[in-house]
């Protein structure tokens, strides 16, 4: 029997140049309101002069397997969709913001229309076999999206071939946004 889909994204930190094309593409594709963003760039510098290292990461909701936001939601608006994407049903969201307090990545924001909004893995595109807007625009091909349970998928191959990490694994939420290092 075929395994259930597990949608994940990998971010190649050696390819990402922090150009923010993913951010702009997401805002345009999803009509993200002015001043808000569903994905963003983190520039992390470690070490001490002169031995510094910099990592650039395109970051967004981690679509965790055990998401704290879904556990905290009192109305069931935050839920795990088929394939593992974490979504918010707008008309069920009272805007209590418990999910925002529960998210270790601070990946959610309040939409001016009153509901809590976040990355959806562009399910309106990916359901038909397309790619999320951020992935399709990335000029350095740093982003890869796909089914981690399909051994033949590009993202599975990259995760097998490359060293990778997730952010804040200690929360036990099993994030599905992988950073190739």
């Amino acid at each position: 029997m075929a395994k259930e889909k597990r949608l994940v994204m990998s971010v190649d930190t050696l390819r990402c140049v922090g150009c923010s094309a993913c951010v702009v593409a997401c805002k345009t594709e999803n009509g993200v309101p002015l001043g808000c963003t569903r994905d963003w760039i983190v520039e992390e510098t470690t070490g001490r002069l002169p031995h510094l290292a910099m990592e650039l990461r395109s970051t967004r909701c981690n679509h965790c397997e055990h998401p704290g936001c879904v556990a905290a939601c009192p109305t069931g608006a935050s839920h795990i969709n088929e394939g593992g994407a974490v979504l918010v049903t707008h008309h069920k969201c009272s805007g209590c913001k418990a999910c925002m307090a529960a998210c270790p990545y601070d990946a959610r924001y309040v939409h001016p229309e009153g509901y809590v909004d976040k990355c959806t893995f562009c399910l309106h595109r990916t359901a038909d076999g397309g790619l999320p807007a951020c992935v399709s625009i990335c000029p350095t091909k740093a982003l890869t999206f796909g089914d981690a349970n399909d051994p033949g998928s590009e993202v599975s191959q990259k995760l097998r071939a490359r060293k990778h990490k997730v952010l804040h694994p200690e929360t036990g939420m099993s994030p599905n946004l992988y950073f190739l290092i």
Binding site: S20, G35, W40, E43, T45
Partner: peptide
């Protein structure tokens, strides 16, 4: 960390 994000 420097982050380009200013969500209200």
């Amino acid at each position: 960390e420097f982050m380009v994000r200013t969500n209200p």
